[in-house]
């Protein structure tokens, strides 16, 4: 079984610091990590490989430092990694990203499965997986909690809010993996040491035959006008006392008084 996993390198939001005077993010020294959901996709791919054999290839689009994340994935046991780095790719929105990833997947001669995390923790759009499936002309099985491959078909347990559904599709297919799907493995030292030695080719726009008009900022229909932190308005706190029912009644009355209900 041939599996391709697409990962994104994101800032480690747990270690984000803010300038107290300007309110801006302090970017200097901010460590980067593999997007949390994408690690679940990597784990799912490795489990499928252990069960069915084959090869797992990881690809990531981003600046030169995404090599760190690709090597981290190799350390987890992934067989091969490809880095998509080109100035032409910079500033890509979901559409341009999925277009570029699709060209890379095709350049790799496709796969039985293409796995991604459900969404990236810095953008939270959850669009790249479905748009990649569209670009590849493959079925999309999103929000996967479990993945079972049987012959030429794949069955996925899908979590949509409180609803859990079971979906089936023929291979090849694209799957986005939920955080609850698994517990990503810790990279063992022998794989880590091997990962340091592996070749990670860098593909540019011309390598994958990408038209620069369809990549990066140029190819992105989305226009980002402004990024801002929402203003936090200080309100008054009112505490209700009494039994649970009394408190609930008082709370509802207050909401009505303030015209929220």
């Amino acid at each position: 079984m041939n599996i391709i996993v697409c990962i994104k390198q994101v800032p480690n939001v747990k270690e984000v610091k803010w300038d107290p005077d300007t309110g801006n993010l302090i970017r200097t020294g901010l460590p980067s990590i593999i997007n949390v959901n994408d690690k679940n996709a990597l784990e799912a791919a490795l489990v499928l490989k252990e069960k069915h054999g084959g090869k797992v290839t990881v690809i990531s689009m981003g600046p030169p430092q995404v090599e760190e994340s690709l090597r981290e994935a190799l350390g987890m046991g992934v067989d091969e990694a490809v880095q998509l780095s080109d100035k032409a790719f910079a500033g890509a929105d979901c559409w341009a990203t999925s277009h570029t990833l699709a060209l890379a997947v095709k350049k790799l001669s496709g796969a039985d499965l293409v796995l991604l995390g459900v969404e990236a923790m810095d953008g939270n759009t959850a669009q790249v997986g479905p748009e990649l499936a569209e670009a590849l002309g493959l079925p999309i099985l999103s929000y996967a909690l479990s993945i079972d491959v049987d012959g030429k078909a794949v069955k996925v347990t899908q979590k949509l809010g409180d609803v859990v559904r079971v979906l089936e599709a023929d291979l090849p297919a694209v799957i986005t993996v939920e955080k609850e799907a698994n517990e990503p493995r810790v990279a063992p030292m022998d794989c880590v040491l091997e990962a340091c030695e592996k070749d990670v080719p860098v593909w540019k726009a011309e390598t994958i035959g990408a038209d620069e008009e369809n990549c990066g900022l140029k190819g992105s229909p989305t226009r980002l006008r402004k990024i801002f932190s929402p203003k936090v308005t200080r309100g008054q706190v009112e505490l209700f006392s009494g039994s649970l029912d009394e408190v609930a009644e008082k709370f509802v009355a207050k909401l009505k008084e303030l015209y929220y209900l």
Binding site: G29, G75, A187, P188, M189, V192
Partner: peptide, 26 residues
């Protein structure tokens, strides 16, 4: 900052793996 002057790629990979273990298991 500046630790990259001393630690190479393989060291950083060791670091990430141990950090992952500490966060998840310990």
């Amino acid at each position: 900052m500046g630790s990259e002057m001393y630690f190479g790629k393989e060291h950083e990979m060791v670091r990430r793996a141990v950090r992952d273990f500490v966060d998840k298991v310990i």
